[in-house]
């Protein structure tokens, strides 16, 4: 995949979204401690970290699914409180969850439009406009090059890759302002993964949507991301730009990390050896 045609983000690009000092506990389990992240207009931010580091919790707070114990979210310059996923979606924040949130008993086109259905009036009754949704879904999925048997079939008939593609297509259909993808490549084979990655790269090229991407494969991080936040034990341990950090360095930092100090030391070492401007928050 070519990086050459990707426009570079200017240093003065405005911040579209800020999560400030977010903390969250579930009973006895502390998931997040004072986590802050910043997302710039048109930027692709990778959120990396081990299993259980709090990545999914953080994005579920952003999507309105969970509510933070403390901390604030500033979105498009205003402080917001999302009471539900419906709230966040209505304000242009779309999320593709790890479980994809597809409804097995419904058709592909109903899944595409659930929560924002099209209606028509029949004898004064507000009924679903199934034909319109079917046609729009078919056209849209075709335009993205997503191959599915028929938009009429229920999603439980789809392969893992097709399901993932439908979930991603649903999230970008409404041209969101912020798109959150929780491990969009997890269940995919090489070819299918490349396709979804291509979709993300296309969005990045246009710089019209800001993306938070949770990934495990650092190869992919460097292909499509502008910046990396490394979340460790509920805290942001590293915030670095992909142009300043190499994949090898990142892997060294992540591998070192079973303790704060180890991460800090590794990060400092990387910083010293490159003289880069990557900021270490610890």
């Amino acid at each position: 995949m070519s990086q050459k045609d990707i426009p570079v983000l200017k240093p003065d690009t405005p911040v579209i979204l800020e999560m400030n000092r977010i903390s969250k506990t579930f009973g006895a389990v502390t998931a997040l401690v004072d986590v802050s992240i910043k997302l710039h207009q048109g930027e692709v931010l990778a959120l990396v970290g081990d299993n259980g580091a709090g990545k999914s919790t953080l994005i579920k707070i952003l999507s309105g699914f969970h509510h933070p114990d403390s901390g604030t979210i500033v979105y498009q310059g205003k402080e917001v409180h999302f009471r539900s996923p419906r709230d966040a979606r209505a304000q242009g924040i779309e999320t593709v969850y790890q479980d994809l949130a597809l409804i097995n008993d419904l058709s592909i086109y109903h899944n595409m439009f659930i929560g924002r259905e099209y209606h028509k009036r029949v004898l004064g009754l507000k009924l679903l406009d199934n034909r319109k949704m079917r046609d729009l879904a078919q056209t849209y999925l075709n335009s993205l090059g997503i191959q599915i048997p028929s938009v009429n079939s229920t999603v439980d008939l789809l392969s893992g890759g097709q399901r993932q593609s439908v979930a991603v297509a649903r999230s970008i259909y409404s041209s969101p302002t912020v798109l959150v993808l929780d491990e969009p490549l997890a269940a995919l084979g090489v070819r299918e993964g490349a396709h979804v990655l291509g979709l993300i790269q296309n969005l990045r090229r246009q710089r019209s949507v800001s993306i938070i991407l949770i990934v495990h494969n650092y190869n992919q991080v460097f292909e499509v991301c502008d910046r990396i936040n490394f979340l460790h034990s509920g805290e942001i341990a590293l915030d670095a730009s992909t142009s300043d950090t190499s994949e090898e360095q990142l892997i060294r930092i992540v591998k070192s990390g079973l303790g704060r100090q180890a991460i800090a030391a590794a990060a400092a070492e990387v910083e010293a050896s490159t003289g880069s401007t990557s900021t270490n928050r610890l």
Partner: peptide, 29 residues
């Protein structure tokens, strides 16, 4: 039958029973 098959309420009723977590995530109340 009309409500179940041709309205948003029916669609959300099916979604709730089919995948309650997924339905919540996508904004079904």
């Amino acid at each position: 039958a009309l409500v179940l098959n041709r309205t948003t309420f029916g669609l959300h009723t099916i979604a709730t029973g089919s995948n309650i977590v997924g339905a919540r995530e996508i904004g079904v109340r």
